[in-house]
Amino acid sequence: MASSNFVDYVKIFARSGAGGAGSAHFRREKFVAFGGPDGGDGGRGGSVVLRGNSQYWTLIHLKYQRHVFAKDGEAGSGARSSGKSGEDAVIPVPLGTVARNADTGEIVGEVTEDGQELVLLPGGRGGLGNWHFKTSTNQAPRYAQPGEPRQEGAFILELKVLADVGLVGFPNAGKSTLLSVVSAAKPKIADYAFTTLEPNLGIVEVRDGRSFVMADIPGIIEGAHEGRGLGTRFLRHIERNSILLFMIPATSENLRNEYGILLNELTQYNPELLDKERLLAVTKCDTAGEEELAALREQLPEGIRTVFISSVSGYNIPQLKDALWETLRHTNDRKP
């Protein structure tokens, strides 16, 4: 994993800019002995801002840039001239990035749209110049406000992949093979567990120019919610998927039991995942005979739409795509 270009978790230290001090200047011109206060305001300090960028899909650009500092605002000057505001420190992040306070664990916010901005630390306000404090009883105030101090803190940025359909299954269930067949994605495929070590995304075309995004999530094992296997590191990516496609191979000893284990892992990790629409794909049907398939149909869990497929032979792949599209359309129609 050390050489992977997919980085979905980073910790950064950020610091906003301090506000510039207001000026206590007095107007001084020829033939004007006592011109009165004309000190300008200090400039606002720069903020630390996350900005969604659809061209990014990983946090690798922050892997070696863990310190982010915004610029301080400049002090005000005479003739009521305000100081220049400090430049914001803008951090581009992929859509689906969640920011949380590293000390308290509190979620600061999340970025889910291109161009959306999330302020991690606001810059300090600039101080007011002395002309603001002129009154009928104090015609020559010799003081001005200092700028507000900078803020700093440590933040954890986590990426949760945004996709319409997430593939859920044990290692070597055929998830990567399916993604490579229905999209142009080229995930690593091999006949051993944990071939997929990072999420892969692919665009699946249905009909009439319609399409949806499918995510191949690394395999889940029993106890994943406790950190076993790849643990919770990739379980969080499932939170962003609109539909969950469970995948269990036809070679499974007990299909209903495996489905129950997968469902339990998601429940233990986040019970809200049960609110998502679910479909079941029984994979590798090209390796099973009619009698075996008939026996599998007797083991199907209740209450979930099931499609028997083979990514190798293409068996029922169009039917699966149609079922996913139909479910996705109904899911989107119900959203407020």
Rank of each mutant, 00 (worst) to 15 (best):
E117I: 09
I107Q: 13
V119C: 07
E148G: 10
D41F: 05
E298M: 13
A21W: 06
G289Y: 13
T251S: 14
P199W: 01
L296C: 05
D8W: 08
R15C: 12
S4A: 15
G39V: 02
R100Y: 05
A144M: 06
F13P: 02
A224V: 08
F69M: 14
H132C: 09
R233D: 05
G223A: 13
G260N: 08
I203S: 06
A99G: 05
G83K: 06
G96V: 00
G45R: 00
T331N: 03
S85I: 04
A294N: 15
T306F: 04
G147I: 04
L274E: 13
G129L: 05
G105R: 11
G105T: 10
V119Y: 01
V98H: 00
L300H: 09
D322P: 02
I189L: 04
F246R: 00
F155L: 10
Q299D: 13
Q139F: 12
E113T: 11
S311Q: 04
V119R: 04
H25Y: 05
G289W: 12
V119G: 03
H61D: 09
N172V: 11
V68K: 05
A294D: 15
G202C: 02
K11L: 14
C285H: 06
L230R: 01
L245N: 00
S136E: 13
P146K: 15
E87H: 12
K186L: 12
G260F: 04
E222C: 13
T97S: 04
E117W: 07
V111G: 00
P271L: 12
L157H: 06
G124L: 08
Y56M: 14
F170Q: 10
A190Q: 14
G209K: 11
N53H: 11
Q55N: 15
L279M: 11
I107P: 00
S176I: 01
E326Q: 09
L230H: 00
G231D: 06
W57S: 15
G36E: 08
H25P: 00
L262W: 02
P301W: 12
L157Q: 05
K188I: 07
P271F: 11
S81F: 10
E117G: 06
S23T: 00
T112Q: 05
S310C: 13
K188S: 11
S176L: 06
P249R: 05
R15L: 11
D114I: 10
S311K: 03
N200M: 00
T195G: 02
G147C: 07
E110N: 08
L178I: 02
D275Q: 15
P149I: 14
T104F: 08
A193T: 12
